[in-house]
Design a protein around this nucleic acid. Sequence first.
DNA 1: AATCAATTTAAACACTTGTTTCAATCACTT
DNA 2: AAGTGATTGAAACAAGTGTTTAAATTGATT
Lengths: 222, 222
Amino acid sequence: MKATFSPPEPELMTQADVRTRLLTAAEKLFAQHGPAATSIRDLAREAQVNVAAINYYFGSKENLYLETLRQAFRASREVMPRFDALAQEAQATGTVEAAHTALRLYIEEFMKSLFVSDESDRHMRLMAREMSDPTPALDAVIDEFIEPKSNILKQLVAQARPDLDPETEVPFYALSIVGQCLHYRLTQPVILRLMKREKMTSEMLDQISVHIAAFSLAALSR
Amino acid sequence: MKATFSPPEPELMTQADVRTRLLTAAEKLFAQHGPAATSIRDLAREAQVNVAAINYYFGSKENLYLETLRQAFRASREVMPRFDALAQEAQATGTVEAAHTALRLYIEEFMKSLFVSDESDRHMRLMAREMSDPTPALDAVIDEFIEPKSNILKQLVAQARPDLDPETEVPFYALSIVGQCLHYRLTQPVILRLMKREKMTSEMLDQISVHIAAFSLAALSR
DNA sequence: AATCAATTTAAACACTTGTTTCAATCACTT
DNA sequence: AAGTGATTGAAACAAGTGTTTAAATTGATT
């Protein structure tokens, strides 16, 4: 007679220890090596947990990955209010100059969030990986993270250039700004080699942010 | 009594059939799914070849990947003269306006080379993959492809803005331009979803090229 | 203290991976 | 036509994958 086990309801979080240890390990390893290159035995070792625990608590490795992503951008969204406040303040002031300062800050904050190496670094790595090498989890990442952040940027661009069509023109300007920033994260190994540097320093980061802001604002001014 | 087989000298290309069929299949599959997600059995099926042939002709899967990359950017470099001619013509004319037109063409050509879906598309995919997810083969890709192409772009930027320091300022401008272009290739799935499109059309490509050129040239003009 | 479900465990499962083996076959020279 | 070395082929290999099993253990409730 086979006993059928029903996994616990995630929201109850009973015996959260193993579950959260697993999520922590997953965030670390998935961010470091990607989901394909991370085996459930690696995960189990890192979390100091039996291999079966992964399927017991999450049903499958893929589901654990999804859950990890969910947790990652749930945490990342808590940084969003800062960006949101930025945009709302600029909108309240209403001037083109206010939009410019907000864009400068937006770029600086965005670049920082891409590189500051701690928890948010792992989150960014996870999402960057999804973008260039998508899994079925990509849709969630777009809806809950990229789209809202992109909307803030579009709003700032629209305020800086009220003459642009919000539907057809503004999006391209927003992509140009994000593209410059992401480039340094997505092709970091190449850029470091071209610049003959070992690693990204905070001085370089400042320099880069200032350049991207100057470049983009120059492009935005008529 | 084991017979020891010595693989044929690559430069002799004796019985090139199997070897080249394998390279062709590898180029296709590695570009499509990446080296990690492509098994040697997938490769053997695609090339209509026995699995053992891979190790017989290339020693290992990793070596086949390296050889494929080598072949890819050897072929890609043959497109370089076009870019080179672009830069030399601009330099010959010498005016800022000439640099602007050359930059416009450069961006257009570069975007095309990133997306036109044929042989060069696979080469670009292979190299883009190396950039965001490097293997030991990255160094060769940088030296033989990225660096020279980047130098042409820097030269055009320097001609358009003679006041900029070639060592400290020009590189950032070049990266801003390349970054905008690559963004559309590296995060293509995300961008298509944000734009609510199924696939990249040549009309979109033109539109994008025109925008990036306008944006960048506006940023470059004082 | 006994009961009973929730959890943990080691082992096995079925499958895929890259690589190797070795006999069969092929192309070519003597 | 026989002999020889290069190539091919089917099968086996060892190691690794995600998942499932069923017995052992735990922890709380009756």
